[in-house]
Amino acid sequence: MNISVVIPLLNEHESLHELYDWIAQVMQSNRFSYEVIFIDDGSTDTSWNIISELSQSHPEVKGIRFSRNYGKSQALHAGFAKASGDVIITMDADLQDNPEEIPELYNMIVNDNYDLISGWKKKRYDSVISKNLPSKLFNWAARKTSGVKLHDFNCGLKSYKNEVIKTIDVHGEMHRYIPLLAKNAGYSNIGEKVVQHQARKYGETKFGIDRFIHGFLDLITIWFISHFAKRPMHLFGALGGIMLTIGFGFSVYLGIDKMFLNPHGRLITQRPQFYIALTTMILGTQFFVAGFLGELILRSKPNRIRYNIKNELNLKESL
């Protein structure tokens, strides 16, 4: 098996036949051996029926159906677990990603020995105000925070070595940061390719402006995970130490001032420095406790099931 095409989707029944036919034409014209894995993330339309029909007519079509909507990251996680290709291509199901890009994405992994290639939709057909400008701001922040120099973190069109997708753990809404997850896992040979972006042909976008808010929050999360996931005490202990040092310094100052410099002045509890010292020492203690709890959780966390699969088509477990 040379290529696995992993396609998460939600209510995209209008585009599925056209998308598959396009992918098949590209694969066959390039004589690729391939599989197409559709992950139905809780669609309420006839998407699963279409995937079932395609799988019956085309054995290379695989299907995974979630019992409800779990999100794109969980859909990719399920698809990655089943993918058996040497090279994995991810793309969206709305026809905004062009399957004609697949051969070059494949060659950049196989011939140029990249671990991961991320698409860059340099020219976009989205709304400038609602999507383009927030996307540029988000990508700028992601580059500065992560150190991964990509122009378009959120492009769904990417290619990977098989070992990369079998190593990284995509969950929550971390699909935007797969290149950073790969980098943290030791796969630093990450490239970028300008890809064609097409106007949406059917339906409406499933993502609103709130995805960028969630994206920035996830960026903070993944920054923390990148630097302190293995040792949370390094962060919380440092913050706790700073707070306790400030509080202790104010306490010493108040004690010296009251005992030697101004013994007949105001009561210590009437001075603002007392409350600064009290607050910072309490915060410092809490940071230390948070660090200890983080260390304990890391050492005892169980493996959690993040989604429930309702149906599968033409699939075997991939190692």
Rank of each mutant, 00 (worst) to 15 (best):
G172Y: 12
N162Y: 14
L116Q: 02
G147I: 04
I220Y: 13
F236G: 08
F224Y: 15
H197I: 06
E163H: 13
L116F: 03
R124A: 14
R176N: 12
I117M: 06
F212I: 05
I222G: 12
D115V: 01
M233E: 12
G191K: 04
F207N: 10
R211E: 14
I213K: 13
N184V: 02
R200M: 14
P134R: 07
G186C: 05
I117P: 01
I165E: 03
F216T: 08
F228A: 08
K166D: 04
Y114G: 01
L235E: 08
D152L: 04
H175C: 10
R124F: 07
D218G: 15
V128Q: 06
K136I: 10
K201P: 07
H214C: 01
V128I: 11
S118A: 15
K158C: 08
N184Q: 10
P232S: 13
S130M: 07
D126V: 11
V195S: 02
G186E: 02
A238H: 10
Y177R: 03
F224E: 12
F236C: 08
G147V: 04
G237E: 11
I129E: 06
S226Q: 11
G215R: 09
G172I: 07
I190Q: 00
K123T: 15
D115A: 11
N154Q: 05
L219R: 11
E204L: 10
Y114A: 00
K183A: 00
V148S: 02
M174I: 09
D115I: 00
K144N: 09
R211I: 14
F228K: 05
I165K: 03
R211M: 14
P232Q: 13
P134V: 05
G119N: 05
C155L: 01
Y114L: 04
Q196G: 02
L150P: 04
N162R: 15
L157A: 01
D126A: 06
V128G: 01
H234C: 10
V164S: 01
L137W: 13
F236P: 08
T145E: 12
D126Q: 09
D115P: 03
N132V: 11
S118Q: 14
R211H: 09
K161F: 03
D210T: 11
V164W: 00
E192Q: 14
K166Q: 10
H227T: 09
T221A: 08
V148A: 05
G119H: 05
I168E: 00
D218I: 06
Y160D: 01
L219D: 12
N139R: 07
D115T: 01
R211Q: 14
S146Q: 05
Q196I: 07
K123I: 15
D218S: 15
D126C: 09
S135K: 13
Q198E: 12
I213L: 10
H171P: 00
D126F: 09
I225H: 13
A182N: 12
D126E: 12
M233Q: 14
E173P: 02
S188K: 11
W140S: 10
I168N: 03
S159M: 02
F224A: 09
A199G: 11
A182H: 07
F228I: 08
V164C: 02
P232H: 14
I225D: 14
H151S: 12
K201C: 08
W223F: 10
